[in-house]
Design a protein around this nucleic acid. Structure first.
Lengths: 91, 91
DNA sequence: TTACTATATGCAAAAACTGCATACCCCATT
DNA sequence: AATGGGGTATGCAGTTTTTGCATATAGTAA
């Protein structure tokens, strides 16, 4: 399912125009992003937690040439599924 | 930030009551979950992709006792941040 | 059409996972 | 509003899993 299809579904179940559904959706993702930018994690009960994970610098490799490359430290957004979410998929 | 705080923020920016903001939010997460249950991944451009990752059974270990343990196969929801999302945190 | 995303490659090192106790913070119920 | 219970974070070690490097292409999405 892609974003367009998701918006279409939401438009139906939320009884909103597609444009409004999309605005609503974007507002939510942006709010989550803003919180994460402020170095805060976002916990959503029954769904999961978004947090910014810091990754250390390390040695990588160019798969084409085999050449070693230094990879800088970085950050990425991690999503940890809530317990309830795991259970849905493990029964 | 927890769900309650997120809902409060959304209530403001979406100009909805907190109850409506929560219903809207829950509808979205449920829609995503339903899609994932159907073994589908959910791609949201500019944000990320949710997908169900299947993990094979394997041998683990109790870190306290060192004892070997059989770990059953399982599934978990994985979130892969979109390119744009990574860039936000790596500049 | 333009932009993004998945894939595929080899490989080193980071990170996740396991059980379990403790501490803590939410959340729902009283 | 207060309280109890439950989910979640943490730390531990060792093995498994994931990550992410360059880059072109194919497929998909905006």
């Amino acid at each position: 399912m892609n974003k367009k299809q998701l918006i279409a579904k939401l438009s139906g179940s939320l009884n909103l125009s597609k444009a409004d559904a999309e605005r609503t959706f974007d507002t939510i993702t942006n709010t989550i992003l803003e919180a994460l930018k402020g170095d805060d994690s976002v916990k959503i009960a029954g769904f999961g937690t978004y947090k910014v994970a810091k990754r250390k610098a390390r040695v990588g490799r160019n798969p084409r040439t085999g050449e070693q490359i230094q990879i800088a430290a970085s950050q990425k957004v991690k999503f940890l599924p809530a317990k309830a979410l795991k259970e849905v998929f493990n029964r």
